[in-house]
């Protein structure tokens, strides 16, 4: 039973990370209909920035508490800046191009960013500093649920609540929902669609950065390639939930996280990624609208 609970919690942890990344895919897709292939790289850059800042601070002897705060902030700030800039460079000029053009551009951007980090930093795995110390009160259940697992879950829930508040109640959140529903109408009622798109990229990237920071401190190492696999998996989660739907992305992420955790725990861990990819292929073939998405009839 302990093993089951352990797998369950590790599935939730995975699911939380996927959710943080999947939200970026789903929000961008909801607004401009683009699979932002470079989103995984944003997450990777978030993890790298956190790694660099945290290591520098710890070398210069800052206290752990301040390191966590500053590294987290840096990851969010820089990832958002990358997200914002990438949209301006690689997607905005292609807003009226054929549908596949921005996708090819996004794939190019993803390859570019991976190699940019590879060249500027290193191809080796780097040890990520422990940002979250083991709490003492966790001692009795530590063999089932680690401190970082709990921290990830708590952080994710907090971030989700914050995101819901932003989308439901703030002006920009309302503008986002309006734009996602009907871009034409949104423009007509005076919403600046360019700003909404930028904001979407910034928010999505910030979430990915938090995911990057959490997973890096959980696993304890990073390299330039982590964004690719994580990106594909988060995308799988978003499609599973129904791309474009925010609750769908969260639901899809937890389903994927739990499936992966149990499959690797009870079946075999060799084929961990094969599970995810197969799931992706199967959903797209049999239920491309996902769990919470709506099937649409193209108007002729």
């Amino acid at each position: 039973m302990d093993y089951f609970i352990e797998l369950f919690f590790s599935g939730l942890t995975r699911g939380s990370i996927y959710a943080l990344i999947a939200l970026g895919y789903t929000m961008v897709y909801g607004i401009i209909g683009l699979i932002n292939f470079a989103h995984g790289e944003i997450y990777m850059i978030g993890a790298f920035t956190a790694f660099i800042v945290a290591t520098v601070l710890s070398i210069y002897g800052f206290p752990l508490f301040s390191i966590v705060i500053i590294a987290g902030l840096a990851a969010v700030v820089w990832s958002s800046s990358y997200g914002y800039t990438i949209e301006k460079i690689a997607y905005k000029p292609l807003r009226h191009a054929p549908r596949l053009s921005p996708l090819i551009s996004a794939i190019g951007m993803s390859i570019f960013l991976q190699n940019y980090v590879l060249l500027a930093q290193t191809s080796d795995f780097l040890p990520f500093p422990t940002l979250i110390p083991d709490w003492e009160f966790m001692e009795p259940i530590a063999h089932i649920v680690g401190t970082t697992d709990l921290a990830i879950l708590v952080t994710t829930v907090m971030v989700m609540v914050l995101l819901t508040v932003v989308i439901k109640f703030t002006k920009i959140g309302k503008a986002m929902r309006a734009t996602a529903q009907d871009r034409m109408m949104a423009t007509l009622v005076g919403i600046n669609v360019n700003n909404v798109i930028s904001a979407t990229f910034i928010v999505g990237s910030a979430l990915a950065a938090i995911g990057g920071l959490l997973i890096a401190s959980h696993i304890g190492q990073i390299n330039f390639y982590i964004g690719f696999i994580a990106g594909i998996k988060a995308f799988t989660a978003a499609v599973l939930g129904g791309i474009g739907s925010i609750p769908g992305a969260v639901l899809g992420s937890f389903v994927l996280g739990l499936t992966e955790s149990f499959a690797t725990g009870y079946v075999s861990s060799d084929y961990e990624d094969v599970f995810a990819f197969s799931l992706l292929v199967l959903i797209l073939i049999f239920k491309p609208s996902g769990l919470l998405g709506k099937a649409t009839n193209q108007k002729v």
């Binding site: 460079i89 690689a90 090819i104 551009s105 794939i107 190019g108 951007m109 993803s110 390859i111 570019f112 960013l113 991976q114 190699n115 940019y116 590879l118 060249l119």
Partner: peptide
């Protein structure tokens, strides 16, 4: 590879 990515964009 950097160039390939850049070229696509």
């Amino acid at each position: 590879m950097l160039a390939f990515g850049g070229i696509l964009v």
